[in-house]
Design a protein around this nucleic acid. Structure first.
Length: 841
RNA sequence: GCCGAGGUGGCGGAACUGGCAUACGCGUCGGUCUCAAAAACCGAUUUCCUCACGGAUAUGAGGGUUCAACUCCCUCCCUCGGCACCA
């Protein structure tokens, strides 16, 4: 690019950044909560360098914070770092640099980048999750959960990432692969710590309806993830045995069509049922084969159905019929009871299984439009219909029968109505070093003992050895592991697992209110005044994990009485990704756009403006270097406009340049131009304010400011004479342009604001208000349609009456030629908008 | 399969509650300035027909409602995201 700058951004930007910091513009007194506005950006993991895609999040947040400030709010915009995690530990294993060192280095790089973007925060409140002053309280939350029975340890099949060498929560497994490294996840049976999030499943689902200001798609994703279904649990007596078999079904209306029972291969009764069967060895061999199939392969709908008959039967309680028990690969032990009553006629999976093993298919719900024939059916009939072959329920619509049969079951003690969720408990222990130690002590005498609050934090030892095997150094840190029982003081061992980093991030938004509090996690009274967060801004990738966990922890803290609200985030905004060359920016793809070079060439304001102008912020957008130049040119135009206006104010250089001087030189013409500019200015205030209040419509707000700047620049060339009202009007307009631009491009705005003779920071000034009378158009251009097609336009005074309007329109030569001799059937007037003349054919 | 969001010029995208489709920006073309270029500024730019005036045509496809449809209704296609042998 050219060395000649359109405006001196390189000297302006650092100057005002220093000014804001010296004046403590973003530093908040939390005691003053009357007009509070808590504007929160998802705190980042400190990676080596930010790119323009990351920038979008922070820029949006900064715009909101500055705008709300100008609306008179006491704005809290804090920032921190989610700084525990695997990448730093892996780097330590590879490069020998301690995670703490690399993490703190990355944090200072990121702070430098945020600063040069002109993104400001109340840095006095910085929260760093890997420091003991913070994780002490993460451990405190663990202990509280443990005391309430909501943190527990159990042996279970868990997701194991062989590459990260640690377990993963269900939420961290994506299509059978590790969310972080994409390695295929295997199953391992291990003793692990869990949080009983399932206890909150119903509330987490139900309270989604309270979140009216959350994007629909996020709520849908959470609802899908929680996966509620209502049904009936049935206890089947096993023929000739004392055990009963419990099945869960959402379709109890199909009970008369149950022709077999299917068990998951992992079902605890499998061994018992197999015992003494005709061919026990062959059966167990088939079971083992199914158990060894990978979970991912098994949970594909296309997977081949496989099964084996146990030789045993259950009794169907409704009709006393003997139903064979099969073991089937498509039944999952994790869901429901791991056993189902199979109704091939009305469930596609059961249908396929029945076809494969030649099991009977019995229709119990008939299609009212075309009766079903079990012999010729090609697929299961899963819709509603009319009950058949179902004893006293015959003839009922299946929907009604569902309820009736459920009641009948409960009445006869055959089963009871229950609810199932797909949501599993949250597995939080990790076999890694760089995380908050789980505050638990194992005493040979007293058993599992939580670390007492007075002994927190359990410090993560720093002098440890990182082995290339990838095993947690804590396993070998004898000084750390060996301790004493807090109760009986006999030698005991510490838990060496650490917590999932999502635990750290599920409460940080509370810590910002009293970040240095060292006798409790936060000041409840102040937190209750400042939360819920008024606006939360972050990436869609956290739609389930972080947002669900944060909601859970908030509800828990509410239940133990330390906070008085049970949803943390009132408004949620999820911004789209910035794409380059058709893909998400990443180092490995080599398509990362660094802000540093762009800021050097064009300034931070240009990068901010382009990022905001690129498109609707909730959508993904393709980065274009050309687009950046366009934004830069626009700021250059604004700069020249304001410079020119200042010159006019001083009485200099006042000659109309635009075309025909005579046309604009009259007093009347100058007055008309003033009116026109004032109208456009106030219309723009209205538009920009509505775009910001009604959502995050930054792109259209900016385009309307561009229109105003274009018009003002044009009018500036038509000024004639000194000190007239037009100069005054241009000056006022320039001030408003600068104000409307200020949240988006704060540096150039602050500079121009002061150049226009203002003393105080622009962000301490009130957002402009539009004058209702000023936006009213006096002359309207009315489009005229003939038979719905635009044929002409005429200019009329705004207050014209319909009779006069019609007369003028019918006198218009173009209208005359289109109407001709035809009769006017209808004359539709949309007031102040449009006219449509309907002709008879 | 289910749920959600979308489909508008060469490109990113505007369009309130049914009322001038394509604002704003990018790109392209032409011009001004210049010895020349870059930058900047001015103008044109849905597509097709026409020297032009002007006309026809277009919001994924096809129907419908209406004086009037990007917007509402029906049928279908495609893209993106989530969930998924979930009983």
């Amino acid at each position: 690019m050219n060395d000649e700058k359109l405006y001196p951004f390189d000297s302006i930007e650092p100057k005002w950044q220093k000014f804001w910091r010296d004046r403590r513009l973003f530093n908040v007194d939390t005691k003053d909560s009357a007009d509070k506005y808590y504007c929160l950006m998802m705190f980042p993991y400190p990676s080596a360098a930010l790119h323009v895609g990351h920038g979008r999040n922070y820029i949006i947040g900064d715009v909101v914070a500055r705008y709300k400030m100008m609306r008179g709010y006491n704005v809290l915009a804090p920032m921190g770092f989610d700084s525990f995690g695997l990448p730093a530990e892996n780097a330590a294993i590879k490069g020998g640099i301690h995670p703490k060192t690399s993490t703190l280095n990355n944090i200072s790089t990121m702070k430098r980048q945020l600063n040069q973007w002109g993104v400001e925060y109340d840095w006095d409140r910085e929260v760093i999750s890997c420091l003991p002053e913070y994780y002490k309280w993460t451990q405190w939350i663990f202990v509280k959960l443990y005391e309430k029975g909501l943190a527990y340890k159990k042996k279970a099949f868990v997701n194991w990432c062989p590459s990260c060498k640690t377990v993963l929560a269900n939420e961290q497994v994506v299509n059978g692969s590790c969310e972080r490294c994409s390695a295929e996840v295997s199953q391992k049976e291990l003793e692990q710590w869990f949080f009983r999030i399932t206890h909150y499943a119903e509330r987490l689902l139900k309270d989604l309806t309270k979140l009216t200001e959350w994007p629909e798609r996020v709520k849908t994703m959470q609802a899908n993830w929680i996966g509620k279904s209502e049904g009936v649990e049935i206890d089947f007596k096993i023929d000739g045995m004392s055990e009963t078999l419990r099945c869960f079904t959402t379709r109890v209306d199909t009970i008369y069509g149950a022709t077999f029972i299917a068990l998951a291969p992992e079902h605890p009764l499998v061994e018992t049922l197999a015992k003494g069967s005709k061919d026990e060895a062959a059966l167990m061999k088939a079971v083992r084969k199914m158990r060894n199939e990978s979970k991912i392969a098994r949970s594909q709908a296309e997977a081949e159905k496989e099964g084996a008959f146990t030789g045993k039967f259950v009794i169907n309680p409704v009709n006393g019929r003997k139903v064979p028990i099969w073991i089937a690969n498509y039944i999952l032990m994790e869901y429901g009871t791991g056993a189902i009553m199979a109704v091939p006629a009305h469930d596609q999976r059961d249908f396929e299984f029945a076809k494969q093993y030649k099991l009977p298919i019995e229709v119990v719900i008939d299609n009212p439009n075309s009766p079903l024939n079990p012999e010729t059916m090609k697929e299961a009939y899963i819709e509603e219909g009319v009950m058949v072959n179902s004893a006293q329920f015959n003839g009922l619509p299946s929907q009604a029968a569902l309820k009736k049969i459920a009641e009948f079951f409960e009445g006869n003690g055959f089963g009871k109505r229950t609810v199932q969720y797909k949501l599993r408990d949250w597995l939080i222990s990790r076999q890694r070093y760089w995380g908050a130690p789980i505050p638990i002590i194992y005493c040979p005498k007293c058993g599992i003992m939580p670390v007492p609050e007075k002994d927190l934090p359990v410090l993560l030892p720093e002098n440890v050895e990182f082995r290339p095997t990838g095993e947690s150094p804590l396993k070998f840190a004898k000084d750390f592991a060996n301790t004493k029982c807090p109760k009986c003081h006999s030698p005991a061992m510490r838990e060496t697992d650490t917590m999932d980093t999502f635990v750290d991030s599920s409460w940080y938004f509370l810590r910002y209110i009293t970040p240095r509090s060292d006798d409790r996690p936060f000041d409840s009274e102040l937190v209750n005044r400042w939360l819920p967060v008024d606006q939360y801004i972050g990436g869609i990738e956290h739609a389930i994990l972080h947002l669900l966990y944060s909601r859970f922890i908030t509800k828990f803290l509410h239940d133990i009485g330390v906070i008085n609200f049970d949803e943390p985030f009132k408004n949620l905004f999820t911004q789209g990704m910035i794409i380059k060359d058709g893909a998400k920016m990443s180092k490995s793809k080599g398509n990362v756009v660094s802000p540093d070079g762009l800021i050097k060439d064009y300034g931070a304001d240009t990068v901010r403006l382009y990022t905001l102008f690129i498109g609707p912020p909730e959508k993904d957008a393709e980065w274009s270097d050309r687009g950046v130049e366009g934004s830069y040119r626009f700021l250059g135009r604004v700069w020249r406009l304001v410079e020119g206006v200042i010159l006019l104010n001083k009485g200099g250089d006042v000659v109309a340049k635009g075309g025909d001087i005579a046309e604009f030189s009259s007093e009347d013409a100058q007055r008309k131009l003033s009116e026109q500019l004032r109208r456009k200015t106030h219309q723009t205030i209205k538009k920009v304010t509505e775009d910001l209040e009604g959502g995050f419509h930054f792109n259209t707000a900016i385009s309307s400011i561009m229109e105003l700047v274009n018009e003002a620049s044009d009018i500036k060339t038509k000024v004639f004479g000194k000190n007239n009202t037009l100069v005054e009007c241009l000056n006022k307009s320039a001030e408003i342009i600068v104000m409307l631009l200020s949240p988006f491009v704060p540096h150039i705005a602050e500079e121009m604001w002061h150049a226009l003779g203002k003393e105080n920071s622009i962000f301490k000034c009130k957002w402009p208000q539009y004058d209702k009378s000023a936006i009213v158009e006096k002359v309207l251009t009315i489009p005229i349609q003939v038979n719905g097609k635009l044929r002409s336009k005429i200019e009329v005074p705004a207050e014209i009456d319909n009779v006069e309007l019609k007369a003028r329109i019918m006198a218009d030569p173009k209208v005359k030629s289109w109407v001709g001799e035809k009769a006017v059937k209808d004359f539709i007037i949309v007031p102040k908008k449009l006219v449509n003349i309907v002709l008879s054919q």
